[in-house]
């Protein structure tokens, strides 16, 4: 009998969760047609997905127990890397963005070398401090990076021709939305599979008890390095995409505390311990802020994030994801 109970642990998706997932997917696919095509709701949801990816990238570190306040360093390096490569090399943005990601990943390796031994609050503070180094360099290397004036005239994402159909991400918000949707789904699935793999288990053991993990054969140092590289690379890619969306980058824009804090807020709200938590947080919270609160309180709407973090930590310390999962389990059993 004990065996039956233990064997049931292999999770089969319940009908309810499959239905919810499909409904959610269809909703997102048809979102541009449900709202005014290309209108503010479509753009808000595009940016929500974008921030979902940013939060997913951040959450890889968090899954390992490393709560970072410095991911904007990777973001800014990715943005500047891609922008400058486009500016000087006249390369296709779809090529320069991954290169920007690699620049971010390189900084992730430096993190590991410089303060890979730190944990908890000292780690968070060191990560926060590490943002200043690339920011100050870029701010002052005017001959190469244009200093605090920033890089302007960055080309938008280049159009892609599929048969006779032209996907123009720079001009058509609906196409951009679907690009982000595909990217997000891909990242989400990748993330989910990674967490379910042995590597994902290693990451979680490090969060739960590093010494025990090492004593059971988990290579803590290598896993930490891999996590930093993945997280920094993906954050750098987000930074690169951002540069081409905005058309300009400035040090103050891409190396900002806001960009470090937002993924943290979205992940904590959505649930740091579920693979879909960061995305859930992003698609709920970001549109709520941009569409509802911004029109109500044009000046102070960002305060929402502060309230949300405090309320979530007090009421659902594991985030909405964990809370929802419990409800779903109760509803389906």
């Amino acid at each position: 009998m004990g065996e039956d109970k233990a064997m049931k642990r292999v999770r089969t998706p319940t009908r309810l969760s499959v239905a919810l997932l499909s409904a959610g997917f269809l909703l997102f696919l048809g979102w541009p047609w449900l709202t005014a095509r290309g209108g503010i709701h479509c753009q808000a949801m595009s940016m929500a997905l974008f921030h979902g990816c940013l939060a997913l990238a951040w959450n890889i570190c968090s899954m390992m127990g490393a709560v970072s306040l410095g991911h904007t360093a990777f973001f800014g390096l990715g943005a500047y890397g891609s922008a400058l490569l486009c500016h000087y090399g006249h390369l296709n943005p779809f090529l320069t963005i991954p290169l920007g990601g690699i620049l971010g990943a390189f900084y992730g390796v430096l993190w590991h070398i410089a303060f890979g031994k730190l944990r908890g609050a000292p780690f968070a503070l060191a990560s926060l401090a590490s943002v200043e180094i690339p920011k100050v360099i870029i701010d002052n290397w005017e001959s190469f990076t244009f200093g605090s004036l920033g890089v302007v005239g960055i080309p938008p994402l280049s159009p892609i021709r599929v048969g006779s159909f032209m996907l123009d991400f720079g001009e058509n918000p609906v196409h951009l939305y679907h690009l982000f949707l595909v990217g997000t789904l891909f990242l989400c699935l990748l993330y989910r599979q990674a967490l379910r793999s042995r590597w994902g288990w290693a990451v979680r053991t490090i969060r739960e008890d590093e010494t025990a993990a090492a004593s059971l054969g988990v290579n803590v140092r290598r896993t930490r390095l891999q996590v930093f590289i993945c997280s920094a690379f993906l954050t750098g890619i987000c930074g690169g995409v951002y540069a081409h969306l905005m058309g300009l980058v400035e040090p103050a824009l891409v190396f900002s505390l806001h960009i470090s804090a937002l993924p943290l807020v979205l992940s904590i709200f959505g649930g740091r311990f579920q693979w879909y938590g960061p995305l859930l947080g992003a698609v709920v919270l970001y549109p709520l802020d941009q569409v509802v609160f911004r029109s109500l309180f044009p000046v102070g709407h960002s305060a929402l994030y502060g309230f949300v973090v405090i309320l979530t930590l007090m009421l659902f310390p594991q985030g909405m994801g964990a809370w929802l999962q419990k409800r779903l389990h109760l509803a389906s059993s």
């Binding site: 288990w201 290693a202 053991t205 739960e208 010494t211 025990a212 059971l216 988990v218």
Partner: peptide
């Protein structure tokens, strides 16, 4: 360990599986 160091969020079975996977 004298002061046990379980993985608190994982099930007992998963705790043991970690040893099997990485040992």
């Amino acid at each position: 360990f004298q002061i046990p160091r379980p993985f608190p969020q994982m099930t007992v079975l998963e705790n043991v599986l970690v040893g099997i996977w990485f040992g």
